[in-house]
């Protein structure tokens, strides 16, 4: 494969990655009338969580999950 073809292939790959990322970023969730189940109250940001935990002097519990 020539250098030009390689460059085009890399450029195309980057474009696909960027478009995928951008589409995921822009996606808006569907709205439902369902009501949520009672769940622990999560901190809205990491910084807010640290400030609150220091004031209360309690540990942070970080739940690392994956949607898929």
């Amino acid at each position: 494969m020539s250098a030009a073809l390689k460059l085009m292939a890399v450029f195309g790959f980057v474009c696909v990655l960027f478009m995928g990322h951008s589409a995921a970023q822009d996606a808006k969730p569907e709205v439902t009338d369902d009501k949520p189940k009672a769940t622990v109250e999560f901190a809205k940001t990491w910084e807010a969580a640290v400030i609150e935990a220091k004031l209360l002097n309690v540990p942070l519990v970080v739940h690392s999950h994956g949607f898929y």
């Binding site: 808006k28 969730p29 999560f42 540990p59 739940h63 949607f67 898929y68």
Partner: peptide, 19 residues
Amino acid sequence: AKQNTVEVLALQRLAEGVQ
């Protein structure tokens, strides 16, 4: 948790689910 922790979520790939 109300009394003893601050709960934090680190959830990956949610935007993918929305999309």
